[in-house]
Design a protein around this nucleic acid. Structure first.
Length: 463
RNA sequence: GGCCCCAUCGUCUAGCGGUUAGGAUCCAUGGUUUUCAUCCAUGUUACCGGAGUUCGAGUCUCCGUGGGGUCACCA
């Protein structure tokens, strides 16, 4: 069975890049009828926070990625790591190293000065002399110091490292006894039964170290897929400092989770020319072999387009609910269908849509000066007053077509173009020259409110 | 700097030895719309450079160049 995982360290919100690798892992598990596990890498107590863990869970919930089984917390597995540490010590595959931090730093400086690669020199590897007192030792693992390490990566292909280029006896437990990342990752992935590790390719150079651990402990090495980074506009690795990378910020800005996922799945992955993927389609079609080898630049132009697409295809009931966090209450509005039918063709985000609702529902507080100048010339006011009379004599005004007829009648009687009435009317109703069809606007706000706004404009606008 | 990865329109990408190098987005223009947006149509724009292999190279090889990642008692 295929088992994948997402293993964030809870140091802040979940960001876009993390969500994408999580999505890839999720899809690959679903596609294969396998499991997708979630592990919180909270071994560094000084940097972790419970709030960050909650933020990650909240983001997962919002986009609808469900992990299988319970969440694994590394902070709750200290005994497990201690046990394997002891095992390696007992088997002579790891050893205590009494080199102090200061001595290590000095060694590194010396090597750098000599233009050598900074690395631990192995002085305690087979040490049987007198052990220094007053030093809490770290534990180092015996790594192969020659030979080649080969990663059969599902995306990059075969990646070959020379052990002497990249390895030394690296630290697997700190002086305070806590285990380090490369050690616990390997243990947890093995114990959790993870068969496919899909992660950012910034981890590619960590992989040989983890392979050392797998081998020392006799675990099977999983299949690795190192996904190319997402870069920011300046071509560097996308980080939390780049802004607008908090997944939940996209909710606030009015993006739909299906749009965000569709956007992310196409960043670095493709299935021919297809652009639109439903969640089910993604699960069905995703394959890591179709992931690109090169990094992509983060650019949300396409996200806006996708979001507009998914808004258009949402039901009015769904939209009414989604607009509520923006202070829009439409459930009981008798013209909500008409309003939403029109607005969902126009909005790129829910936030934008909410603003559009407000522009229609509430009377304009100000009139755009340019719009007034353009629309209120000649006999505009007279035409508006004529139109008011047309409205007043009509009953049963409900549909946009009812208002359209009234406008049509007026332009026909007066022998004028639609613009003659449309322009000033638009300013009167909305305060500006753009917006949805006037017949729709009037149908939504009703006859009385329409007349009120027109009369306000006629008396309130100075020409 | 060492090691590793990468390289097609501005951006996301298709291509897997023979194509007028395709799609999407963005942008521009036209149509639809009383306006704006939507929608539809059209258009501009790309194989990093150089050798080699081959009848033929965006595709394979090598060398450059450029970009990125990583080198912790962080994860």
């Amino acid at each position: 069975m295929i088992v994948t995982r997402f293993a964030p360290s809870p140091t802040g919100y979940l960001h876009i890049g993390g969500l994408r690798t999580a999505l890839f892992s999720y899809l690959w598990a679903r596609k294969n009828g396998g499991k997708f596990l979630l592990r919180i890498e909270d071994t560094d107590e000084s940097r972790n926070s419970e709030a960050a863990t909650q933020a990650i869970i909240e983001a997962f919930a919002w986009v609808g990625l469900e992990h299988d089984g319970d969440i694994t917390y590394q902070s709750q597995r200290k005994e497990v790591y201690a046990q394997y540490l002891q095992q390696l010590l007992d088997e002579g595959k790891a050893y205590y190293c009494y080199l102090s931090k200061e001595e290590l730093a000095a060694l590194r400086e010396q090597q750098m000065a000599a233009k050598e690669r900074p690395r631990y020199d192995g002085r305690y590897r087979d040490f049987d002399g007198e052990v220094p007192r007053d030093i809490d030792p770290v534990i180092r693992i015996k790594a192969p110091l020659s030979g080649t390490m080969v990663i059969d990566d599902g995306i990059k292909g075969e990646v070959v490292f020379q052990a002497e280029d990249i390895l030394d006896d690296f630290i697997i437990a700190r002086a305070d006894g806590t285990p380090t990342y490369n050690f616990v990752v390997a243990i947890d992935d093995a114990l959790m039964g993870v068969t496919e590790v899909i992660r950012g390719d910034d981890h590619l150079s960590n992989t040989p170290k983890q392979m050392v651990v797998y081998e020392a402990l006799g675990f099977d090495v999983p299949k690795f897929y190192h996904v190319p980074m997402i870069h920011n506009q300046s071509g560097k690795k996308l980080s939390k400092r780049d802004g607008a990378t908090d997944v939940m910020a996209y909710k606030t800005m009015g993006y739909l989770p299906e749009a965000l996922l569709n956007f992310l799945v196409r960043l670095g992955w493709s299935h021919g020319d297809q652009e639109i993927f439903s969640f089910d389609e993604m699960c069905d079609l995703f394959d890591p072999k179709d992931i690109n080898k090169s990094a992509s630049i983060y650019n949300t132009e396409k996200l806006d387009w996708l979001n507009a697409h998914y808004i258009k295809n949402s039901s009015n009931t769904e939209l009414a609910t989604l607009l509520e966090p923006y202070g829009i209450t439409l459930v009981s509005h008798d013209k909500k269908e008409i309003l939403l039918d029109v607005l969902k063709e126009r909005a790129k985000t829910l936030e934008e849509m909410a603003a559009m609702v407000n522009e229609i529902i509430s009377a304009p507080k100000t009139y755009d000066a340019k719009a007034v100048k353009k629309a209120f010339k000649g006999d505009a006011k007279a035409i508006l007053e004529d139109f008011t009379m047309k409205l007043q004599v009509r009953d049963d005004m409900h549909l946009p077509s009812d208002y359209h007829e009234a406008m049509e009648e007026l332009v026909n009687e007066k022998g004028i173009g639609f613009g003659k009435i449309g322009q000033p009317l638009r300013v009167a109703l909305l305060g500006k020259l753009s917006g949805p069809g006037l017949d729709t606007v009037m149908a939504v706000i009703g006859k009385d409110e329409s007349i009120r706004r027109i009369s306000n404009a006629v008396t309130g606008i100075e020409i």
